Structure formats: C-alpha cells, structure tokens
Simulated scan of single mutants.
Amino acid sequence: MRATELSSAPNLAALYLKAVATTPSRRGGGELPDTEYVRRDITVDREHLAEYNRMCGFGLRDELPMTYPHILSFGTAVRLMTDPGFPFPLVGLVHVANTITQHRPLLVTESPTQRVYLSDLRPHPKGSQFDVVTETSAGSETVWTESSTYLRRGKPDESAAKSERTAAIEAGAPTATWQLPGDLGRRYAAVSGDRNPIHLHPLTAKAFGFPRAIAHGMWSKARCLAAFEGRLPEACTVEVEFAKPVLLPSTVEFTERATGQGDGRGRDFALHSRSGKLHLRGSVR
C-alpha cells in the first residue's frame, strides 16, 4: 500500500467542489485505490471538541468521546474518496454501518497519528460496498480503530448474501426520548464537516429521493454513546448498523438492554421512531 503523508487536514470545501465536478466521470467500475494517507501529531482543538460534545450530548472531559476521532479523520477519508482512482461518485454514497474499537481513551492533550485507507470492495444486494478504515495511534500504541461501511447503490447482485440480523431490541418502553429539530443536520454538519446535501435542507434532500433532510448516522451513534456516558468500559467495541434514515424534524426513542454474563457482558441498543420503525441498531462488547 502506498503511504502518503499529509501535513494538515484536507480542505473539505475544495474536496466537495471536486466531488461535484468529477461525478459524471465516475461510473463505478474498477478497484479501490491502493493508497494510505497518514496524518501525524494531530492537535485537538478544545473549542471544537467542546462544541462537538454539546452537539452530541457528551459532558466536558479530558478524554475524547469514542466517536470524536472519526471527526479528526473525516477530511482524510473524503480526500481518499475524491482521488482520481476512486471508482464511485462521493455524492450518493450511503453510510450503512460503523464499527469502532477503543483500546483506551485518547486524552485531549495527546497528539495522535491517523492512518486512513480503503478496503474490501464487495458485492451488496443493492449494489457494491466497501470500508473506510482508520487506525489511530499515540506513540507506538494503536489506541483506536474504525471501519465505516459505505454502499454504492447499483444493479442488484444476486451473489451477495443478505443480512439475516434482526433488530437488536424490539420497540418498547424507551430509556430516553429525543426530539430532533429540523436544523440538526446543518448544525452537525458545521461541527463535523460532513455537508452531504441530504442532511442540510429539505430541497437538497429531495433531489436524492428523501422527503426531508435526514440526520447524520454518526450523530445518531454519538448521541447513543452519550446516553451510556460513565457506563462504558475504557476498552470496548461499538458496532452499529444504520437502518431507516431519521427524517428531520422528528422524535426518536432510545432503548437499551444488557446482554451476556460475566466478562462477556455487553449491551444492545437501538433507535426507533414512535411508530416502531427501526433507525439504528447497535451493540457494545
């Protein structure tokens, strides 16, 4: 794999313009580029971190929320997905799953290194999917890894196995109920840098087939983890699958339950609409 060092975070505004300009030339054929981007000595902006914490419901602490390194690497991931060798148009990709493993919390005073690359292009019942993999280290210690799975909708592939996983938790009495405002997508975009038009405004969302703007999947995951704050082990894996999109504005219900016994204990959790529609299912192990 060809490693390329980046001295600073990529310019997301320029990358989005590039994504729009190159969309017609990306037809979906070919392989993923064999490129790895590396950013060293990343400095955490404390004011930005505080705004992210408020946006997602985390308290202010010296430890980074488990989902915050995703924000640090997002620009690098977008650069990979707008490089000339990337086969798909960035606009229209669907974030369908995310798995984060934390070996220990990162501190706001640390200056981590992140490596980001693409992996495992494979068929999906609704097209093709692949992973964006991020490895975050402090010194020589790998402390955090992430795999974000994206779907490129296309011709159905009969060879792709359909997921047999069912909802982690049936709709029932919620642990918490959250009212999500219509501008949630724009507010989270300002913090995360993820300005996909499906999140920003009803008109731009309708251009991609959604009746209203939809919430970011990574906001939903972060908000769920904030509900666990103070109860998660320092070392754990949190896996989520994004099911039906959360339309904005809306009201969602968070549900959780304990699973397993002894050292294998964990938690399952889910987000549902009040009608019982599943938006997100996840597990902590």
Score class of each variant (00 low, 15 high):
residue 280 L to Y: 09
residue 87 P to G: 12
residue 47 E to Q: 13
residue 61 R to I: 00
residue 122 R to P: 05
residue 86 F to T: 00
residue 10 P to L: 09
residue 250 S to L: 07
residue 36 E to Q: 15
residue 26 R to I: 06
residue 94 V to E: 05
residue 19 A to P: 04
residue 120 D to P: 03
residue 118 L to R: 02
residue 70 H to Q: 15
residue 39 R to W: 10
residue 187 R to D: 07
residue 25 S to N: 02
residue 261 Q to G: 11
residue 233 P to F: 02
residue 164 E to D: 13
residue 35 T to N: 01
residue 274 R to D: 08
residue 137 S to G: 01
residue 211 P to I: 10
residue 82 T to K: 09
residue 8 S to H: 05
residue 179 Q to N: 12
residue 91 V to D: 06
residue 86 F to W: 07
residue 133 V to R: 03
residue 143 V to Q: 08
residue 205 A to I: 11
residue 133 V to C: 09
residue 129 Q to D: 01
residue 142 T to G: 09
residue 36 E to V: 13
residue 104 R to Y: 06
residue 84 P to L: 07
residue 17 L to A: 13
residue 207 A to Y: 12
residue 2 R to F: 09
residue 40 R to N: 01
residue 232 L to R: 01
residue 168 A to R: 13
residue 277 K to G: 06
residue 28 G to R: 08
residue 43 T to I: 13
residue 205 A to R: 00
residue 57 G to F: 11
residue 114 Q to A: 14
residue 188 Y to N: 05
residue 229 E to Y: 02
residue 218 M to E: 12
residue 43 T to F: 02
residue 199 H to D: 03
residue 37 Y to T: 14
residue 259 T to F: 13
residue 111 S to C: 15
residue 227 A to G: 06
residue 257 R to F: 07
residue 231 R to P: 00
residue 251 T to P: 07
residue 163 S to Y: 07
residue 118 L to F: 02
residue 154 G to S: 06
residue 218 M to V: 02
residue 284 V to F: 03
residue 102 Q to F: 07
residue 153 R to V: 12
residue 132 V to L: 00
residue 13 A to E: 10
residue 198 I to E: 05
residue 132 V to G: 00
residue 243 A to Q: 09
residue 227 A to R: 06
residue 151 L to G: 04
residue 68 Y to F: 15
residue 96 V to N: 08
residue 88 F to T: 05
residue 170 E to I: 13
residue 79 R to I: 08
residue 165 R to D: 14
residue 120 D to H: 00
residue 107 L to R: 15
residue 121 L to G: 03
residue 284 V to K: 14
residue 234 E to T: 11
residue 133 V to F: 03
residue 78 V to S: 05
residue 102 Q to S: 10
residue 12 L to A: 14
residue 59 G to E: 13
residue 89 P to A: 04
residue 51 E to P: 02
residue 37 Y to I: 08
residue 180 L to C: 09
residue 166 T to W: 05
residue 243 A to M: 10
residue 63 E to K: 08
residue 104 R to L: 00
residue 27 R to P: 11
residue 45 D to N: 13
residue 188 Y to K: 04
residue 214 I to C: 10
residue 49 L to G: 03
residue 251 T to F: 04
residue 43 T to E: 11
residue 219 W to F: 10
residue 188 Y to P: 06
residue 238 V to D: 01
residue 195 R to Y: 15
residue 97 A to M: 04
residue 185 G to T: 06
residue 68 Y to V: 07
residue 216 H to Y: 02
residue 78 V to N: 04
residue 189 A to C: 04
residue 75 G to C: 10
residue 144 W to V: 06
residue 130 F to A: 00
residue 152 R to Q: 10
residue 276 G to T: 02
residue 258 A to D: 08
residue 204 T to Q: 13
residue 266 G to A: 14
residue 178 W to V: 14
